[in-house]
Design a protein around this nucleic acid. Structure first.
Ligand code: MN
Ligand code: MN
Ligand code: MN
Ligand code: MN
Lengths: 223, 223
DNA sequence: TACTCTATTTAGTCTAGACTAAATAGAGTA
DNA sequence: TACTCTATTTAGTCTAGACTAAATAGAGTA
């Protein structure tokens, strides 16, 4: 792994996430995620593509994809991030809404040795506190079937697998509603036209979620 | 505490250590410790002195001292550093020769929240694995009588309090010789002319230490 | 086929923090 | 009182990574 700066690592991580569905990441999408000006992103993309070896393939006005070298860096940083989040929650008593920002700074400076020690004391976890998969030391990802809550038919029984990690206010709200990885629920109604999915958790009052939120909550269908 | 970059924090930490005996730190001494060119240090000292509030008082060709604001930043970073070293050894199973470099990167990015959590799980330790005092949350330092090994009269019984933290090879050697904080020994000979102090630890063969090393090992005199 | 609009790029700046090479202050010596 | 030597400073560069303002490619529309 060539030496990369924290900004470069955050770009690669963002591009990794934006290209999960196979299509190149756009300049503006990257700029929005990283809260930078699009012009700054264009400059960085050109530098990432010009590195030896190149970390992205960049086609002007068509967006970027990661090269194998870029993907390795991204997965390495994501492994750091998710191990750190898990460690902060499990061993240091952080709440799950406090860890993302801390992990986003620490992920760039921990050594491979520290990564290895953290993984060891946690017992090589495969998922972080938000249910996101933690790349293994060989950078492979644990696979499983996930569906966004917005795509599950009404009436299904589901188990929550994963929630978004970067919005502390939402995380506190989900926690208060007991919507955490592992929680089982029934889809009471699925209403694409109103863009609302309503959950029912063990006799508690029904919980309506709008699609912008529901699309970020991933579940497995139990029946 | 105003926002300070990692380089600025390392400068302030270094200046703190170089000015422990009250005299200003010289440009060259700082450059040597940080492995930078003296010209680069001059530039930084001018910037540190020009900040609002100033972090150092800088008299051209006479060296720098920390202002109260600069001292606060230095102590805050030193607290991070020493808590981290302790945590890495106690909770993550690092050896004492591995932690300095790791702590020197992490010290700049952990939040006050994380500092607080680490201190809590460690039980608010007052000394790090090398015996260095850890500034308390209010930035006061635990005080105690320390003498460099080179200044203890021959024949004295001593207990090792503190060893230098930044030389991994020396730390491994000291560990192999069982010269660690807490170890008790007798000064077999103190020879300023030959610049050697010889220690005797519990029936093991005598251990001669040259003054460049002896001056960095601090002890308390038992009798 | 020309026009419009938006996403993106280009051009030019700025800052922090490093560097090298050359100048110089001033302590100590002749 | 002038000279020498070393530590330090000055002057000028460079790089990464940000910014703003202006230009433009090219998809979609008239
Ligand atoms: Mn996160
Ligand atoms: Mn980050
Ligand atoms: Mn240290
Ligand atoms: Mn440091």
């Amino acid at each position: 792994m060539q030496k990369t700066s924290p900004p470069v690592q955050d770009y690669l991580k963002t591009i990794y996430e934006l290209t999960r569905e196979g299509r190149p990441a756009s300049t503006n999408a990257i700029a929005e995620r990283l809260r930078l000006q699009p012009a700054s992103v264009t400059g960085m993309l050109q530098r990432l593509a010009a590195r030896q070896p190149p970390l992205v393939t960049y086609r002007k006005r068509h967006g970027v994809q990661l090269t194998p070298a870029g993907r390795r860096v991204a997965l390495e940083v994501i492994r750091h991030h998710r191990l750190l989040e898990t460690f902060l929650v499990e061993k240091l008593g952080f709440r799950w809404d406090e860890v993302h920002e801390e992990a986003c700074r620490l992920e760039h400076v921990i050594s491979e040795r520290m990564e290895e020690r953290i993984a060891a004391v946690l017992g090589d976890p495969l998922f972080d506190p938000h249910g996101a998969p933690i790349p293994r030391a060989d950078l492979t990802l644990p696979q499983r079937e996930e569906l966004p809550l917005t795509q599950v038919p009404g009436g299904s029984r589901i188990r929550i697998l994963r929630v978004p990690d970067d919005d502390p206010a939402l995380l506190r709200r989900l926690d208060a509603l007991q919507l955490r990885p592992g929680t089982e629920a029934r889809i009471r109604t699925q209403s694409p036209l109103e863009a609302v999915v309503t959950l029912e958790v063990a006799g508690r009052p029904p919980i309506p979620l709008g699609y912008p939120v529901g699309a970020l909550v991933f579940v497995e269908v139990l029946s």
